[in-house]
Design a protein around this nucleic acid. Sequence first.
DNA 1: TTGTATGCGTTATCAC
DNA 2: GTGATAACGCATACAA
Lengths: 343, 343
Amino acid sequence: MSKKPITIHDIAEIAKVSSATVSRVLSNSNYPVSKELQIRIRKIAEESNYIPNMLGKQLKNNTSTTIAVIIPSISNPFYSSVVQGIEETARENNYTVITCNSQQDPALEEEYIRTIMQKQIKGLIISSISDDKTLLRSCMQMGLNVVAIDQVIEEDQVSQIKFNYEKGGYMGTKHLIELGHRQITYLTSKLDRPSRRSIYKGYKIAMEEAGLAPVSIESGAEELYNAIHDFDLGKKLADKVLALSDKPSALFVCNDMMAFGVINRLADKNMQVPEHISVIGFDGIDFGMMIHPALTSVKQPDYEMGKMSCKLLFDKINNEAVAAYDIVLQPQLVIRKSVKPLQ
Amino acid sequence: MSKKPITIHDIAEIAKVSSATVSRVLSNSNYPVSKELQIRIRKIAEESNYIPNMLGKQLKNNTSTTIAVIIPSISNPFYSSVVQGIEETARENNYTVITCNSQQDPALEEEYIRTIMQKQIKGLIISSISDDKTLLRSCMQMGLNVVAIDQVIEEDQVSQIKFNYEKGGYMGTKHLIELGHRQITYLTSKLDRPSRRSIYKGYKIAMEEAGLAPVSIESGAEELYNAIHDFDLGKKLADKVLALSDKPSALFVCNDMMAFGVINRLADKNMQVPEHISVIGFDGIDFGMMIHPALTSVKQPDYEMGKMSCKLLFDKINNEAVAAYDIVLQPQLVIRKSVKPLQ
DNA sequence: TTGTATGCGTTATCAC
DNA sequence: GTGATAACGCATACAA
């Protein structure tokens, strides 16, 4: 049984003024109110533990101080770092963040987008899994500001934090080649998303440039997504490598979690990394430094990606005139211990 | 420039009925409306892409379909699993979740709580860092439903998902003793939180029961919190162990992230786990299976903790009469590869 | 400088 | 079964 919260009208009554005046003071409007009244009203508000009701405010102004984030899964460390960056930037701007896990399910993604619209949220940062952008498009027409991360959305009005996946794939492969590796196999989950295809493309270009034959092993389609799914996928791919009669000297794995699985299974079968075989990952998540051997990887700046996407979003929200623009983040090689130079 | 969204009034006008009737139909009220009108109104709503405005609804009804979660940091895998559980359960109930990272900072925690109240949110799941519960208490009086996880809050009305930390500490220690270990050192971050003290207590009881002398190494106070902070802390504690002339045969580390750091530093100094020294962790996060050696740990059911806390919260929200009740989750030993039996 | 009145989109109360 | 109207809490156009 909670007592009814006090409103500006209650304060107005106590102060013997109109609620308009109270509103002007308490909402920090620059509308002129006498110093004396300001003090009196603030005092009463303080004493009565007044809490402004943002619902009323937002309904009136058609504004919102909440943004939404749609990602595949928060328990994936890459995305949790992204969200951390978003949340910090949002808080600095006095916004709160609604986090939505799409679980790689287009239907869920759509459900979330609908809810977001109903809640009158004006800003969305999304790693979209769905191919069908008609809903998103109509939401943008109705005023939703959208920033795409991780997965490109080819729509006008959608700003993007892009990442140069292709260059990343190229860099990682080049690194192995420069260390003397010739037989480099690319291990990947199903190549059904643009980001994955780009990494693979970069790998292929680097191989061909060096006159080497690209070889890839691709996993089947994914079932429902969860935290350790990629890890298990990595194990399965490692099994396929182990079954090869002519084994490569290095493995390029399409993300770190899968690389962990690869290394783990290899170790189980007494193939030491990097002594017997070298492994390089992709993403450069912090956990890479915690495993043995510490994982060499192509770093995708997760936390920074979160911060930038949020800044970009606020730019759009506060500045309707501004044209949509993209930011392209560059990959960086994180050299640790999982790659051995070949003489 | 977004066009004005359509409302029940617009639909009423098109259908030549009153907005009251439209509301009755579209809000699925059980108020009687003729079949014919129902169909007509739904058709128009559909065709015009009507999106209900939850702000209006909530302002009118003083309800909310958003809950908030306050945790130290989403980039800590333990909490990201908790949040995953919360978010899934919330979505099943058509609620969305606002995630707040307190960074172990009481001031930030308070700031978030105030925002939550302003947004008229009725439910909060919190791992509280603050000692001062006066704000939280007054919020509960104003109708906020609170469920505490991870850190106990001794207040009436606060329901808790407790975890039997002491038993966990006892179990882990007992496991080492049963495998023949006699010199077991407990490695911990600063014992300033109840949960940490309880684990230590369990360790101590098990040691004393076996006639062994408890030995602990405690780190200094923590600075600002972040993802790999615990990992680095573990490294530092490992250094202290390495400096010991008489080394223990086993280490009990107060959480998994720190245990990763311990193992990592030990390996750097050519002390193999578990060949030279055994290590057991606490939390049982999934990443434990990915490192080498796979970490034996006391499992705290993170994901389930999230699910249950959310269910408990909805129970309170929907059922004001119900008395606050606690749930006590039991620890479970996850035996992997980081502990060696001593003969 | 202050007050009055209205509307944001919805639902509930009351009349018909 | 349906409609008119008030109210939720707030901000603002307009009046004074």
